[in-house]
Design a protein around this nucleic acid. Structure first.
Ligand SMILES: [Zn+2]
Ligand SMILES: [Zn+2]
Length: 760
DNA sequence: AGCACGCCGACT
DNA sequence: GTCGGCGTGCTC
């Protein structure tokens, strides 16, 4: 036998999301084991066996650690690639969470294979040895006999213990002492990899339409771009074709492509254009309807380099994909690029980080870029490319505003202005379709008691229940709660309880008064569960309706080529929500919904009803003037010190007992205020009850923190220190959970060298 | 988070 | 005398 090789050690990240355990633990690597960085391993940890990942390699034992144990098992199926490991360290720091929390969404989903203990026979027993054991220790001899018959001369400990646990355990112990058997943790036998069929693989790629002059010019710029690009292209300017062309070049170089879409836009047909165009490549669509098993298979296919194009929502960025040449972030302005649970990452930042790691190009595309993206472009951090022409050459549909104050003055109190009614009437006569848009959530049918004013609310969340017409039940929009409609008021027992339909229902009623024979379809959260949405949209697309009334859901998705009128019923409603991005969001939504009037061969038209037609946000939509809006809005942000001119952090406290949550928020705020004095321009607002006071039985308080520094690091440090101080202070069953999110708008989006360690 | 160890009340 | 309450300390 050769002298034992150099002892090897690893530092392991433990599979526990606790801040206290967000450190590395040392283990010795058994001789002969191959354990690379990132490998998923199982380790003995505090008298338990737990999963972990190799985060560092060492060639000598750690100092100050007395009992270094051996790794128990290696899971050869899962290895976190080096760049994902760096990404995890970066995310943990950037988004204020533990490395384990940051790592979890990067791993194959579903339950992990747990190792079990196996007994393996060592060497071969001669017949004499076996006979002598048989005389002295019949139990042990029987075990030897069973093991020598077993496959690979090994058996699961639990199986071997079968007939008589007590006796067998003792016998196995004797055999281990004598060196005849060995006990080892092993993962289940390797299962054949779950090959999931890519599905319909097109025979021949669909043809490439010729590019317009503008598209060609943009493609040229992209081919030589030296950094990330913001592609601002008006509705219908053909951005997708630009993405596809860039992707084609990247694929031809043997590199891979990631195409990101907002969460809701992720339907199988959304990826159809890509799968058809790139039929020669392997294109993977990671849509939300995938089962755990399929996602698992997808992870392994990506990890083994079998996928050329990945299409997915934000989480696709965390896939173990390498040799990336291009990342496209489509509809860059969509809020769904920010994850609302820990790790609260912003996919637009992660895209830039991933691209920086792998030297890939990033294209962020939008007709209405987020204010911060446009600002970042102005700062030279993104290269701005603009597409002003529509592919069809046609003008954008004209937008007309109707002043509802004048309507009211003229004694018309309905939801529909005279001008909109006339426009609808025209479409009905011409056999064209109309889309009526209510731009606010919460326009739902709730149940109200006429006698005492009680509104039925969810017992788990502080929100009113919504009457669901199709199923005839009351439902909560924030949790799974459903209940029957009560016959009498639970508060005063009056029977005068009524549905109060402020939303689409009331509009439908009014429409039918004016146009009794019109076929009106409604789409809102009370008509629609997930298939209901699709059903209504398909019905409308098949022209089984003349007018579709709906909320935000109708703004995106399917094209309706017969729609020539878009009516926005109350354009300013969403302007008045207390949120600094309200104007920006309104402009984006209205522009998007207005664009739906321009998909027809017939000229389209947009009518916006409003109580403040002079508002710069609505003016911008009317004039198709994004840049004008940007200038106005960015100067307001600057004057008020809102992002991107400051960092806003939101600290959310949740817990089952309201008093405890309130208390935690207060003490936390106090701690932070103590620090604020010494670190500079830091303001602490609140705590206040959150907009949703209770969600799934958990009460909510928020703290808003503003930091007017250039760089967010001092803010991060302060928040982290406060969290640590609070943890030391609070009692032990943590009754209240704290979660921090920092608005990314002002982040420089320039990344430090990759070898820099991010210590949290 | 688990899971141990450890020191004080009401029970076979 | 013990069984068991959960306060605090640790996990390579
Ligand atoms: Zn609820
Ligand atoms: Zn009542």
């Amino acid at each position: 036998m050769p002298e034992t090789s150099q002892e090897r050690y690893v530092q392991v990240l433990i599979d526990q999301p606790l801040p206290e355990l967000d450190r590395l633990f040392h283990y010795r690597v058994p001789d002969g084991w191959d354990v690379p960085l990132g490998q998923q391993v199982w380790v003995p940890f505090n008298r338990k066996l737990i999963a972990g990942w190799v985060w560092a390699l060492d060639d000598r034992p750690p100092e100050n650690v007395s009992t270094v144990q051996f790794l128990a098992a290696v899971d050869r199926h899962v290895r976190v690639p080096d760049d994902v490991r760096q990404l995890v360290d970066w995310m943990a720091h950037r988004y204020q969470c533990t490395r384990t929390e940051a790592l979890h969404p990067c791993l194959p989903p579903g339950p992990r294979q747990r190792p079990s203990r196996w007994v393996m026979l060592q060497g071969t027993m001669t017949t004499e040895e076996r006979a002598s054991w048989g005389g002295i220790d019949p139990d042990a001899a029987a075990i030897i006999a069973r093991l020598s018959r077993a496959a690979h001369r090994q058996m699961r400990l639990t199986t071997l213990l079968q007939p008589d646990r007590q006796a067998q355990t003792a016998a196995i112990e004797r055999l281990i002492r004598a060196g005849w058997v060995k006990l080892e943790w092993q993962l289940p036998r390797e299962r054949p990899p779950i090959e999931h069929k890519t599905g319909q693989r097109e025979q021949t790629p669909s043809p490439w339409p010729p590019l317009t002059a503008e598209q060609a010019r943009i493609c040229e710029h992209l081919a030589t771009a030296s950094g990330p690009v913001l592609l601002h292209g008006v509705t219908g300017s053909g951005k997708t074709e630009v993405y596809l062309h860039s992707a084609r070049e990247v694929l031809a170089r043997g590199q891979r492509v990631l195409y990101l879409v907002p969460e809701i836009g992720l339907t199988p047909q959304a990826g159809a254009r890509w799968t058809e165009r790139f039929a020669d490549y392997s294109v993977l669509l990671l849509h939300s309807g995938l089962k755990d098993r399929e996602r698992h298979g997808a992870w392994h296919r990506i990890a083994s380099g079998q996928v050329d194009v990945v299409i997915g929502a934000r989480s696709a960025l965390l896939a173990p994909i390498d040799r990336l040449g291009l990342i496209v972030v489509d509809e860059e302005h969509e809020p769904s690029y920010i994850q609302d649970q820990d790790p609260k990452y912003d996919a637009r930042e992660v895209a830039l980080f991933r691209a920086h790691q792998q030297g890939a190009l990033v294209i962020m595309g939008s007709a209405t870029p987020s204010l911060e993206a446009y600002w970042q472009a102005g700062m030279g951090r993104l290269q701005l490319l603009t597409m002003r022409e529509r592919v069809t050459g046609a003008a954008l549909p004209p937008v007309t505003m109707v002043d509802m104050r004048a309507e009211l003055a003229a004694g018309r109190r309905g939801v529909l202005s005279q001008q909109l009614r006339e426009a609808i009437d025209q479409r009905l006569q011409r056999g064209e379709q109309s889309l009526l848009y209510l731009n606010r959530r919460g326009f739902s049918t709730f149940v109200l008691c006429r006698e005492c004013g009680e509104v039925l609310t969810c017992p788990h969340c502080a929100v009113s229940l919504v009457y669901h017409r199709a199923a005839q039940v009351l439902r909560c929009h924030y949790c799974q709660h459903r209940q029957a409609v009560p016959k009498q008021c639970p508060h005063c027992h009056s029977e005068a309880i009524r549905y109060f339909g402020t939303g689409t229902q009331r509009i439908e009623t009014e429409l039918l008064q004016h146009f009794p024979s019109a076929r009106v379809l409604r789409m809102d959260r009370d008509t629609a569960d997930s298939h209901g949405v699709e059903q209504v949209l398909n019905q409308f697309a098949r022209r089984e309706g003349d007018i579709l009334v709906g909320t935000q859901m109708i703004a995106k998705g399917l094209d309706f080529p017969a729609v020539t009128l878009v009516g926005v019923l109350a354009a300013d409603l969403s302007l008045h929500v207390p949120e600094f991005r309200a104007a920006e969001r309104t402009m984006q939504l209205l522009t998007q919904v207005a664009g739906r009037a321009g998909r027809s061969k017939q000229p389209g038209e947009v009518i916006m009803q409003t109580y403040c037609p002079e508002h710069y946000c609505l003016q911008a939509v009317e004039n198709h003037d994004y840049v004008g809006f940007y200038r106005r809005e960015i100067s307001i942000r600057q004057h008020l010190g809102y992002p991107p001119f400051s960092y806003l952090a939101r600290v959310l406290f949740t817990g089952l007992v309201e008093a405890e949550v309130a208390m935690a928020a207060e003490t936390w705020a106090e701690r932070l205020r103590d620090q604020a004095k010494s670190i500079g321009p830091l303001e602490v607002w609140g705590p206040a009850v959150d907009g949703i006071a209770k969600l799934e039985d958990r009460h909510r308080r928020v703290l808003t923190v503003r930091w007017q520094g250039i760089d967010a690091e001092p803010l991060r440090a302060a928040l982290q220190a406060t969290n640590q101080a609070y943890r030391r202070l609070r009692g032990r069953p943590a009754a209240v959970t704290v979660s921090v999110a920092i608005d990314s708008a002002a982040e420089p989006r320039v990344y430090p060298p990759l070898d820099k360690a991010f210590q949290s």
